[in-house]
C-alpha cells in the first residue's frame, strides 16, 4: 500500500468547508434579498467593482470562491459514490476540472477589474 494523494484535495475541502460554513449562509441571504429586489448595497455593480479593484478585495474573493469550489467538488465526488455511481475516476476528473476552470476564470475576471 502506498500513501494516497487525496490530501491535496482534502486540505482544500476542509478549509472550504469551514469557509463556506462561516460565510455562505449570509451570502445566500444577501443574494436572496437581491433576487427579491431588496438589493443590498453589497450586491450592486458599483460596490462589487470597487471591492474587486483593490488587491485585498481580489484576494478575499479569490480565496473564498476557490475554497468553496473545491469543497463542493470534492464532496460531490463522495456523494456520487454514495449514490452508487462507481466511475469514481471519471467523476473526479469532471468535478475537479470544473473547479479548476472556475478557479482560473475567477482569477482572470478579478485581474481584469481595475
Amino acid at each position: 500500500m502506498s500513501k494516497s494523494n487525496k490530501p491535496i484535495v482534502w486540505g482544500l475541502f476542509a478549509a472550504g468547508g469551514m469557509a463556506t460554513a462561516l460565510v455562505t449562509p449570509v451570502l445566500t441571504f444577501l443574494t436572496l434579498l437581491t433576487a427579491l429586489h431588496f438589493t443590498p448595497s453589497l450586491f450592486t455593480y458599483e460596490c462589487l467593482h470597487t471591492m474587486a479593484s483593490y488587491w485585498i478585495g481580489k484576494l478575499i474573493i479569490f480565496v473564498f470562491v476557490t475554497l468553496s469550489l473545491w469543497h463542493s467538488a470534492h464532496r460531490m465526488r463522495i456523494t456520487a459514490h454514495d449514490f452508487g455511481i462507481r466511475s469514481d475516476l471519471l467523476i473526479a476528473i469532471i468535478l475537479y476540472c470544473v473547479a479548476a476552470i472556475g478557479t482560473i476564470l475567477t482569477g482572470f475576471s478579478l485581474l481584469s477589474i481595475h
Partner: peptide, 12 residues
C-alpha cells in the same frame, strides 16, 4: 503505520 492508514484503503 502511516504507510497503511494514509493509503486510499485507509483513512481516505
Amino acid at each position: 503505520r502511516q504507510e497503511i492508514i494514509a493509503s486510499s484503503e485507509g483513512v481516505w
